[in-house]
């Protein structure tokens, strides 16, 4: 397949390569689908939120070549989740710190899991 599609100047080409470059991209993708399916937002709301995130990133100087796509996807998701009252920026921040702590105490190579005490403090 890679012989079929030559590199496109200025565009990051991946013939039939992995669609997710990292696991977090796949999780962000799946969460948006699951929340839409559950009715937290309509697909039009989602497309609008994602498009708004992409254009604001472009205005801020992002070349938007596809490699930052899931950054925009996640930012749109966080924003929409807060707008719909499913979480708050403060709660998100609290859980981010907790995951940092969980990672710090996990021995290298072991699965990182969140424990209740990670959320304290």
């Amino acid at each position: 397949m890679s012989t079929f599609v030559p590199p496109l100047p200025g565009l990051p080409l991946s013939a039939d390569g992995p669609v997710f470059r990292e696991p977090w991209e796949a999780h962000a993708f799946a969460m948006a689908l699951a929340l839409h399916e559950r009715g937290l937002f309509t697909w039009t709301e989602w497309a609008t939120a994602l498009a708004a995130e992409i254009s604001s990133a472009q205005r801020a100087g992002d070349a938007d070549r596809g490699d930052t796509y899931y950054h925009h996807w996640l930012a749109a998701l966080e924003r929409l989740v807060a707008a719909k009252g499913a979480s708050t920026p403060r709660e998100l921040e609290r859980y981010r710190r907790a995951w940092d702590r969980a990672a710090a105490r996990a021995p290298h190579g072991q699965p990182i899991t969140l424990a209740p005490h990670d959320l304290e403090a």
């Binding site: 990292e22 696991p23 977090w24 999780h27 962000a28 969460m31 899931y70 950054h71 996640l74 998701l77 966080e78 989740v81 979480s87 998100l92 859980y95 981010r96 907790a98 995951w99 940092d100 990672a103 990182i112 969140l114």
Partner: peptide
Amino acid sequence: MDVRVRAL
């Protein structure tokens, strides 16, 4: 990004 996704 991983931390943000796990938090959410």
